[in-house]
Design a protein around this nucleic acid. Structure first.
Lengths: 337, 337
DNA sequence: CCCAGGTATTGCATCGTTGCAAAAGGCGAC
DNA sequence: GTCGCCTTTTGCAACGATGCAATACCTGGG
């Protein structure tokens, strides 16, 4: 059961431990004869290097941690997939954890008893943690932030231009002839600012189009879940003058809203057009299919992992915001004559 | 940058390394005076234990690996969430990897150069790997299988009763008055047998209801994705005598099929009723909402992690199949007058 | 036949921590 | 005053691997 060590193999092959190590790592030339003998012994004992020991010696683990609020949120699942793939390309594996949007959990990650020493770098999609906290706590592990911005200049950060993306989504609705466009997902009280940036973009688009900004059309939601999208939509439908379009700050909100509309017998997009953000696969198959701002998740993952690896290797430039590309994908939920 | 070690703290507090270790681990009583001094030093140097070293010494890493085919498949994402939660309850963290259903990738996991020595146990949702391979390769790491069965008696295994579940789903359609019930998702050629078991249950239900089994109504799909569900549905619609219901082997297939039906102007459930398997959140908000067989994912995760932990600790009973509970959740996609 | 120079092989120390068992210290009992 | 016991503290070795530098070996040239 207990695995064979270099020593066991060395004894069996009648060579030194060091020689076995040399064969295993192929770093130093080894004579044909010994190599054969050692390889036979390796085979017979089914040797596997103990990576914990190797990591201790080398001072690196080859593991990255990816921390997201909720893994069952499709955006994060799809992003995680890309991150794992990107990490593999760099020779890293990924430890995955979720915080449930709990600030306590995020702090744990960086605190005293954490497993932070077990991975070489951290990809964090923060929700509740603040800039100061992160700065004072994350002095050990290289960090790259995903999505939420938190604070200027202190950390590497990868995300789309939220203002521009939101503006573009709203402009699209304007171009489709919508005049009373609601927004679902603002978070004026939150520590994170992604939602607030999207509100800025939404307002910009309305103003540029010469449309009035009606605050009763902006519905806040504490999280970005389907249920909350449905709930928000219900409120909008109850207004004396309901909207003719909704820009949702993510696809789950949009899908929840669409469900509510369908249930209420409101036609999408004829009566109310819907746009989301995230470009999750679910939106390709919903009824109707969902128009969305789709960030290039593979790009985000590659950039974030690449940056993190260069931070680990000490070859990274100073922290900077990286703007990831996105596309407006127009589908049925907003396609009007 | 480089973290302080026990030695640094010891030097600073003027005590032995061992005493610092005792304070940190609180395992052995330490006098009030020294404890205070050591704790001050720990604080000043912001000491964090090097977990790699600790793991080497203790021979355990506190990490479990969860390997699934695809993380962006909602079922696996939702399951992963539960697994991470269950693992945390046992003091473990989770390394997550995906195989893309690639047998090669699965083999790598267990092979020579793998990171298998970095985690204490493996939760594997296999797709392509065979029983023999697993048996000869997984002699090192404790393994618990999720979903796919692979082989009797060699490995701990957690899954629902696929025959019964499929039978129940089909019976439900029969009870709703459907008489020409199709099945999407058979995999007669696959190494895995989940799909085949579901086909068995489907046939049993039809036979018990006295309905003919029409092989042209059983559509195979190599994977369980939305696109393939849509494709399969297209084929069924093209039949001279299309079905009046479809049992899909998972929710993604069902959602793909429903999309195709909506596009074709076929009403669900009036013209064709649809049932899926997996109980993913997406089905609660699709239009129409999706009837599904919902395995208790939290139960699966808890059982699997609990079993794995007991295998690791050497207190596990011999390998056995564990049947996880599931529920038939009836929603609009199959609700007929 | 010996030596230089290169290659192949090895021993030792080390990564940071913990298990074990011995040493040191304190205190009451005889 | 001394012994023995209990508590606190410590030193040493070990987990399994690799970096470094020294040794052993080998070949060809003088």
């Amino acid at each position: 059961m207990a695995g064979a060590t270099l020593r066991d193999v060395a004894r069996r092959a009648g060579v030194s431990i060091r020689t076995v190590s040399n064969v295993v790592n192929a770093s130093v030339p080894v004579s044909e004869e010994l190599r054969t003998r050692v390889e036979a012994a390796l085979e017979e004992l089914d040797y596997r290097p103990n990576l914990v020991a190797r990591n201790l010696r080398r001072g690196r683990t080859g593991m990255l941690a990816l921390v997201v609020p909720e893994l069952d949120v499709p955006y994060f699942a799809e992003l995680a997939r890309e991150v794992i793939t990107a990490a593999r390309a760099h020779g890293y594996v990924v430890m995955l954890d979720q915080t449930d949007g709990d600030g306590e959990r995020e702090r744990e990650l960086l605190g005293r008893g954490s497993r932070a020493t077990m991975f070489d770098g951290l990809l964090l999609s923060p929700l509740a943690i603040s800039a100061d906290e992160l700065r004072t706590r994350a002095n050990r592990v290289p960090v790259v932030l995903l999505g939420e911005h938190i604070f200027n200049g202190d950390f590497h950060h990868v995300a789309i231009d939220n203002v521009a993306a939101a503006r573009e989504a709203t402009e699209h609705l304007v171009a489709m002839g919508c005049r009373r466009i609601a927004a679902i997902g603002d978070q004026p009280y939150s520590t994170g600012e992604t939602a607030q940036l999207r509100t800025v973009g939404y307002r910009q688009a309305l103003e540029q189009a010469g449309l009035p900004v009606d605050d009763s059309l902006i519905v806040s939601t504490p999280r970005f879940h389907r249920r909350l999208g449905a709930q928000a939509m219900r409120r909008l439908l109850a207004l004396p003058e309901p909207p003719d379009a909704v820009f949702c700050y993510n696809d789950l909100l949009a899908l929840g809203a669409m469900r509510e509309l369908t249930k209420a017998g409101v036609r999408v997009p004829e009566d109310i057009a819907v746009v989301g953000v995230d470009g999750i696969q679910e939106g390709e198959y919903s009824s109707p299919t969902l128009t969305t701002i789709a960030p290039d998740k593979a790009h985000i993952a590659r950039t974030a992992v690449g940056t993190l690896v260069s931070v680990i290797e000490g070859t990274a430039p100073p922290p900077a915001d990286s703007r990831a590309p996105y596309r407006l994908v127009v589908r049925d939920s907003s396609r009007r004559a």
